[in-house]
């Protein structure tokens, strides 16, 4: 047992080195923009770049749209499958796991061939159509995470009994969903939402191949043209990811307290 603990501590220490050094390195590098001293110049340059604001704003709005679309598609389906169509469960689960097996680049390739200007549904013919397609693509990419999060939330509550109890008290379907089910799985939805946000905000392949002015392609462009600014962008991106995950933790901890009190 004792040697096990020493090994564990040693291994954990090595893992810390591997995982923390790149973060430290990036932070240090991002401060090196001015010769001979540390400065925030790289960040200043990034913040002063109107393109930065445009692209990150675009990605932000897109990720919000993705979250709304994802929740609207996944939550009712997961609920419905648990309540009424348990037979369909394997099918739905298989479909939601498909995006983990089929690479995003293949999916977007399919989009380009399927929805180009000369196709039956020429979504790529207009900017709005492309944005819509991009949101749908992002919703597809986040489908496994969104579905898993919401389905776990639904499993934690007894959907069938809750629904029947609400109905026996005279509630209609809308009331059941909005007043009974939704508040109980809000934490699950929020963790799915933040995970989606973390995936979408820096995504590169879909945005680049659909030619949309998102944050991901902007970062790559910076990487090819600037020295220290990319490191600053990496720090910003890491901060965003960290904040998303931190909020998930915060919400799930908060909900644990409410559950304990019940």
């Amino acid at each position: 047992m004792k040697s096990g603990r020493i090994f564990s501590a040693l291994f954990f220490g090595l893992a810390c080195l591997y995982f923390l050094l790149p973060l430290v390195g990036t932070l240090e590098f991002s401060l090196r923009a001015r010769r001979g001293e540390y400065s925030l110049d790289a960040y200043r340059n990034v913040l002063a770049d109107p393109q930065f604001h445009q692209t990150i704003g675009y990605s932000f709005i897109l990720s919000l749209a993705t979250i709304v679309l994802g929740v609207l598609i996944v939550a009712p389906t997961a609920f419905w499958v648990r309540l009424k169509l348990p037979r369909l469960r394997p099918v739905v689960e298989f479909l939601t796991l498909m995006p983990l097996v089929i690479p995003p680049i293949v999916i977007v390739f399919g989009y380009i061939r399927l929805y180009n200007t000369s196709s039956w549904l020429p979504l790529l013919g207009s900017a709005a159509g492309s944005d819509f397609l991009l949101v749908c693509g992002y919703a597809t990419l986040s489908l496994p995470y969104m579905y898993r999060a919401i389905d776990t939330g639904l499993r934690a509550i007894d959907v069938g009994t809750l629904t029947e109890a609400a109905q026996s008290l005279g509630a209609g379907w809308v009331t059941v969903l909005a007043r009974v089910i939704l508040p109980n799985i809000l934490t699950a939805i929020l963790s799915g939402a933040f995970l989606t946000f973390a995936i979408v905000i820096g995504e590169y392949v879909l945005a680049a191949l659909l030619n949309r002015p998102a944050f991901g392609p902007y970062m790559v462009w910076m990487g090819g043209n600037k020295a220290y600014e990319p490191a600053a962008l990496a720090v910003v991106a890491f901060g965003i990811t960290w904040a998303s995950m931190g909020l998930i933790q915060l919400f799930s901890r908060f909900s644990k307290h409410t559950q304990a009190r019940r």
């Binding site: 995982f19 050094l21 790149p22 973060l23 430290v24 390195g25 990036t26 240090e28 590098f29 991002s30 995970l195 973390a198 995936i199 820096g202 995504e203 590169y204 991901g216 970062m219 790559v220 990487g223 990319p230 490191a231 962008l233 990496a234 991106a237 890491f238 990811t241 960290w242 998303s244 995950m245 931190g246 998930i248 933790q249």
Partner: peptide, 22 residues
Amino acid sequence: TFSGVASNFAGVPLAFAFIATL
């Protein structure tokens, strides 16, 4: 928590981080 962050810290920023380090 860190694993949640790092598993999503893929793509472009990850490449930048490694360039800035190694």
